[in-house]
């Protein structure tokens, strides 16, 4: 198999993200980060495909330099290479310029059969980037996949559809987004981690290397704009606590359920 490129996003844990109402941007500086779970699933699928069919697994991410360490975690999981697309101009991007930057880098890497990504990121949960990347690369797409097999030069993918799933076949190259939890991602290997930190050289490409003008990337290249952020206040609930032992609690619950059943 030729190259398998996995698009990876580093996401902050939702609970420690702060919103700045003045800039309408998110302050992620105090947040603990992690590789997006669905992207980890994608890395695992890529590694299993490589183990069976050969080829190279290359991780690709757009973001600030601090993402480096997370990509190295992916290398410690077993990826052959990792490239970070990092440039001040790339900041504040919506999915359109993000897809542009990623697809430009994918074309620069070249020689690929498969582009993988998680179905969506846990922070924005848009899930639209894979389709946009596929369009920029002019390759077919299969989204929400739970299994990817490479057989006789063709890719056979099982994907989620309404109320069930489909098995589809396509000739590479193809863009596939994978469902979080489709396979269990392996842990980073300790020996490989040492190498990822000290021996491995992570490539960083900026807008010059990708030959992308400032106005097509980042905030300037974005087609949507966040006008405002509104805190969603949960509706007022009664919050009546039912006390007692298991017996008493269950009796009260059974009563409540019966009462409500008659309504």
């Amino acid at each position: 198999m030729r190259n398998i490129i996995v698009c990876v996003k580093v996401v902050p844990k939702a609970e420690n993200v702060i919103f700045d109402p003045a800039t309408k941007r998110l302050d992620r500086s105090k947040a603990e980060n992690q590789i997006n779970d669905a992207d980890k699933t994608a890395i695992e699928i890529a590694l299993r495909l490589r183990e069976k069919n050969g080829g190279k697994v290359i991780l690709l991410s757009m973001g600030p330099p601090l993402f480096e360490n997370y990509l190295k975690l992916g290398v410690a999981m077993g990826a052959d290479d990792a490239i970070l697309l990092s440039d001040r101009n790339f900041g504040g991007a919506d999915t359109y310029p993000t897809a542009l930057v990623l697809s430009t880098a994918i074309t620069k890497i070249g020689d690929y059969d498969l582009i993988l990504a998680g179905e969506e990121s846990s922070d924005a949960a848009l899930g639209q980037l894979p389709g946009q990347i596929a369009e920029f690369l002019d390759i077919p797409q299969v989204l929400f996949a739970s299994s990817v097999k490479f057989e006789g030069g063709k890719l056979r993918v099982r994907r989620r559809i309404k109320g069930g799933h489909e098995t589809v076949e396509t000739s590479g190259p193809v863009m596939v987004s994978v469902e979080m939890g489709a396979v269990q991602p392996r842990f980073p290997n300790f020996e490989k981690m040492k190498w990822a930190v000290s021996g491995f050289h992570l490539k960083i490409w900026n807008s010059t290397e990708l030959n992308l003008r400032e106005e097509v990337t980042g905030l300037k290249g974005s087609l949507t704009l966040v006008k405002g952020l509104i805190e969603i206040t949960p509706s007022k609930r009664k919050r009546v606590f039912i006390d007692g032992n298991v017996e008493e609690k269950s009796s009260r619950l059974a009563e409540l359920l019966k009462e409500r059943s008659l309504e």
């Binding site: 087609l223 704009l225 805190e231 969603i232």
Partner: peptide, 8 residues
Amino acid sequence: KIMAEIVC
């Protein structure tokens, strides 16, 4: 927890 208002 947040609703973002987005325009194009």
